[in-house]
Structure formats: structure tokens, C-alpha cells
């Protein structure tokens, strides 16, 4: 997830990113941002659309992770309609891990 400072919703996106740091993949113990699971968070009026993926299709923890994203955003954006668009295009890959995510997984 990249946030451009010229984006009119950059402040909201930073707030969303901050909230999503608290959503942990229960198996990998790394948050969804550093895992690179969140592709985009789009703001449109009262709607927030999260485009995200999972580390594997039909991930056994998939429901817990998407629920976590939904709950975390509802907490910081009360009253907004949150929609999660799950995609496997592009599929998640190791290159999507942030530097912090790689460190947390024990990678150099």
C-alpha cells in the first residue's frame, strides 16, 4: 500500500494504515500492512473500499483477517460503509513484504 502526499485523502489513508497495523495475521504474527496484503484503501463519500489479498487462496485464516480489517476500520471511521474487495490478481508474493515484515519473519 503506497500513499501519495498529493492524494486528497492522504490523511484518511494514513489513519487507515495506522489502524491496519493492529490487524495481525494469526499464523505469521505479522500485521497485514507489513505482509503487503493491503493493495489499496479508497475513500469515496461515505464508502471505504479496501482492495486486499491473502497469502494463499482459501487461507484458513482468511475470514479472521478480513473481519479484522473490517473491524479495525469501523473503529476509526465510525458511520462509514466499509467494503472489502478481495483479489488474487496480482497474487500475493514474498516481494510484497515490507522491510519491517521481512525482519519480523526472520529474513535479512
Amino acid at each position: 500500500m503506497t500513499i501519495s502526499l498529493s492524494d486528497p485523502f492522504s490523511e484518511e489513508k494514513l489513519k487507515a494504515q495506522e489502524a491496519l497495523y493492529s490487524v495481525i495475521d494469526p499464523e505469521l504474527f505479522v500485521n497485514v500492512i507489513d505482509l503487503g496484503l493491503i493493495y489499496d484503501v479508497a475513500f469515496d463519500g461515505d464508502n471505504i473500499v479496501v482492495t486486499m489479498t491473502l497469502s494463499t487462496p482459501h487461507c484458513p485464516m482468511g475470514e479472521a483477517i478480513t473481519n479484522g480489517v473490517q473491524n479495525a476500520l469501523e473503529k476509526v471511521f465510525p458511520g462509514k460503509e466499509i467494503r472489502i474487495d478481495l483479489t488474487f490478481d496480482p497474487p500475493w508474493g514474498f516481494e510484497m513484504l515490507t522491510q519491517e515484515g521481512r525482519m519480523q519473519l526472520g529474513l535479512k
Binding site: 490487524v23 484458513p60 485464516m61 475470514e63 473481519n67 473490517q70 473503529k75
Partner: peptide, 15 residues
């Protein structure tokens, strides 16, 4: 543990 965790916490995650 993941099966049991899912049953207890999947709706609470993030809250």
C-alpha cells in the same frame, strides 16, 4: 489451535 482460535476470535479480530 488455529481451528479453535477461529471459532473464538475471528469476529473479534481488529476490535
Amino acid at each position: 489451535p488455529f481451528i479453535v482460535w477461529n471459532a473464538h476470535y475471528k469476529t473479534l479480530s481488529g476490535k
